Simulated assay, not measured.
Amino acid sequence: MEEVSTSLSIDEMKQIEGEIMEKAHKLFDAKDADGFARLLNDSKPQFAKLTNTRTAKIVRLCIEYLIQIPGVNEEREQTVNEWIEWSKDEKRAFLRLRIELCLAQLYYQMEEFQKMRTLLMKLLKEVKRLDDKRLLVEIHILESQCFIRLRDLPRARASVTSARMEANVVYIPPLMQARLDYMSGMLYSQEKDFKTAYSYFYESFEAYDGLNNKEQAISALKMLVLSKVMQNKPEDVTTLFTGKLTLKYNTPEIIAIRAISSSLDHRNLDEFQAALNTYPKELKEDYGVASHLEQLSDTLFEQHLSRIIEPYSVVEIAYVAQLINMKVEVVEAKLAQMILDKKLSATLNQDTQCLTLTEEPAKSNLFSTSTELMEGMRKILDSLAQKASLIK
């Protein structure tokens, strides 16, 4: 049961809480970071009248709203640190841990990954002593985010594994499970295992969609589509967006990633570059997508070249370079690489500066068939020898 103040009834405390949270919602809608700092400071006399549980809830929610307001990083960081100190002075250990977790999320937004890592390591030691499993899961999820951005994938994998182990022994809300699935997908996508990443992003998307959390659902859907694109399966993306899904998630983020998928389907590098120029915020500023753009660009460059030279048996390299508006040296180097990687059956003539396409030799199954036949005969002869030994 909640501890009741001697001066106020439960209904009166609920009224105070409601008034403060109503102001907080208005400040969040107005994106007023300074307003949150004033609201929390002005509410200190009211906190003295409320129980610890209600006070902790109000402060935590206000801080969570505050860190979601974009920009004004210095003001947000200062406010969060002030309330960490307030929690220490008031000896509110669990509230302090929650606010410090919010500070770690703020550091992630500010891309202060070393600060974030240091803070999370300190939090991890404290929370392990308290044995708060749910808070441990949250810390490990944030830790995996941090390590992925630091390109430390072994530690990111260790964090995701730890989060899953803790989640197996305690109930975690669906929203937290969705976050864990999303980070698992991010990890596998960074490790280039896009098939496994797709399954995790799909689980995450379904959870967010079921919880009507559209913002996070869009992020999961975008990464889900990217996983199909990176597997070179743009046709699956077309199948995915049928009916309700197309109408519900027809946002700039999804339109952008579908434009990338379309460029891959058409094997058109110009379409890819046009998508990047049209949707820089949705593609280049999203780390999950941006970290794969170079590989996608390279793949599309190869496919674009393949599409152009397909009709020819002999073609001038300068002509190909002119068609895709690139330097001859760049195109020649890429064609040479494709030939060496056996992605293209052709030869480059340095004297004529031409590319000569050759037919790939038909693959013969004679060797494998002969090997199987001889292995079968060996087994028959061994069987006959065993039977002959029994007759003796």
Rank of each mutant, 00 (worst) to 15 (best):
E2Q: 11
V4F: 14
L8H: 11
S9T: 13
D11P: 02
M13R: 07
G18W: 14
G18P: 07
M21F: 14
K23S: 10
K23A: 14
K26A: 08
L27F: 13
F28C: 01
K31M: 11
D34P: 00
L39Q: 07
N41W: 14
N41K: 15
P45W: 14
F47V: 05
K49C: 03
T53V: 09
A56C: 11
A56K: 03
L61N: 05
E64M: 10
G71S: 07
V72G: 00
R76P: 04
T79W: 09
E85H: 10
L97K: 06
L97H: 12
E100K: 15
L101T: 07
C102G: 12
L103I: 04
Y107S: 01
Q109F: 15
T118P: 05
T118Q: 12
L123P: 00
L124W: 08
E126S: 05
E126I: 12
R129P: 02
R134W: 05
V137F: 04
E138P: 00
D152N: 12
A158M: 12
V160N: 04
N168C: 08
N168L: 13
V169A: 09
V169F: 10
P174E: 07
Q177F: 04
G185W: 02
G185D: 03
Y188D: 09
Q190F: 11
K195T: 13
T196L: 05
S199C: 08
Y200P: 09
F201I: 04
S204K: 03
S204C: 09
Y208I: 03
D209P: 04
L211H: 01
N212Y: 09
N213D: 10
L221N: 02
K222H: 10
V225R: 00
V225N: 03
L226W: 02
L226S: 00
L226E: 04
S227V: 09
Q231F: 11
Q231D: 04
F241E: 00
K244H: 08
T246W: 08
N250P: 00
E253R: 09
A259E: 10
I260L: 11
S261N: 01
S262R: 13
S263Y: 01
D265H: 09
F272R: 01
A290T: 01
H292G: 02
H292C: 05
E294A: 09
E294Y: 07
T299V: 14
E302T: 15
Q303V: 08
I308Q: 05
I309Y: 03
I309R: 01
I309S: 02
I309Q: 01
E310Y: 15
Y312A: 06
V314F: 11
A318L: 12
V320W: 03
N325V: 13
M326E: 10
K327Y: 10
V330R: 13
E332T: 13
A333Y: 15
A333K: 15
L340Q: 14
A346Y: 12
D351H: 15
T358H: 11
P361G: 09
A362M: 05
K363S: 08
K363F: 15
S364Y: 06
L366Q: 09
F367C: 08
F367S: 06
S368K: 14
T371Y: 04
I380Y: 02
I380C: 06
Q386D: 08
K387F: 04
S389A: 10
K392W: 07
